Amino acid sequence: MNRRHLRWLAALLPLGLAACAPRQAVRLPGDAAMLAKQQAREQQLAGVDHWTLQGRLGVSDGRNGGSGSLSWTQDGDHYEFVLHGPALSGADFRLSGGPDGATLEGVRGGPLHGADAEALMQRALGWTVPLRDLRAWVRGLRADSGPAELRFGADGLPSLLQQDGWAVDYRAWDTARQPPLPTTIFAAKPPYKVRLSVESWTIR
């Protein structure tokens, strides 16, 4: 990712990626009861594909980092990410698309169009973003991209998900919602780090 594109991310580290060092989370290997509970959650949420989350997103590539307010709307196979950061001079960074392709706005030379959103992000920003997996991970589910390893917290909910080279660390859950949904997520695949703090979930 070049420095021009990273200017809009300049506020993140004070908000928590580097400065925040949460206490060690509980990491329990899943027993039969925990794995059955997780499988039931996954079955319940597998059909939930129309939702919106609002929150804060922060990223770091090990040298540069920043944050912005995020709105992510998923309508079946169609999606829209809008990340608003002050270093974009008030402009919105927007990624939208579906099976027919993707459009990336708010970057130099944009809007950009491509057949694949992940390839578009790589070309425009230099980041390899597992967008297909994120759609599952953000709900606390294993993606269907390959083998996954789970560890659980004392509450029986996932504490750590390792898949596709990423470690997805669930720090907090909305347990008032059934089934529960994550509200604080750290994800890392060196040198990349991502933090998502969900302020609200809207399921439609």
Rank of each mutant, 00 (worst) to 15 (best):
A136Q: 09
L12W: 01
S60G: 02
D169R: 14
K189Y: 02
S159C: 00
P180M: 10
N2R: 15
R142S: 12
G65W: 05
G90N: 08
R94L: 08
R135M: 10
L83R: 08
S96E: 11
A188L: 09
E42F: 03
L57A: 10
H5M: 08
D31C: 07
R27L: 13
V168H: 09
K37S: 13
L17T: 11
R123S: 14
F93G: 02
R195S: 13
G126M: 10
K193C: 11
L131I: 01
R7G: 06
G76L: 05
P86M: 05
T183P: 05
D92H: 09
L53C: 03
G153W: 08
R195C: 11
F81E: 00
E118I: 05
L112N: 06
A124I: 14
G140F: 05
P158K: 06
L13Y: 04
A46P: 09
L104H: 11
T103S: 13
G66N: 01
S60C: 02
P22D: 11
N64P: 07
P147E: 08
Q178L: 07
V194M: 04
A18V: 11
Q39G: 15
V129R: 14
G126K: 13
I185W: 01
F81R: 06
Y170T: 02
R132C: 00
R63V: 12
K37L: 12
L13G: 11
R3D: 15
L125Q: 00
A172K: 12
D164Y: 14
A154T: 06
A11N: 14
S96C: 05
W8G: 03
G55Q: 06
I203T: 14
R56D: 11
A148L: 07
G97D: 02
W51T: 04
A11W: 08
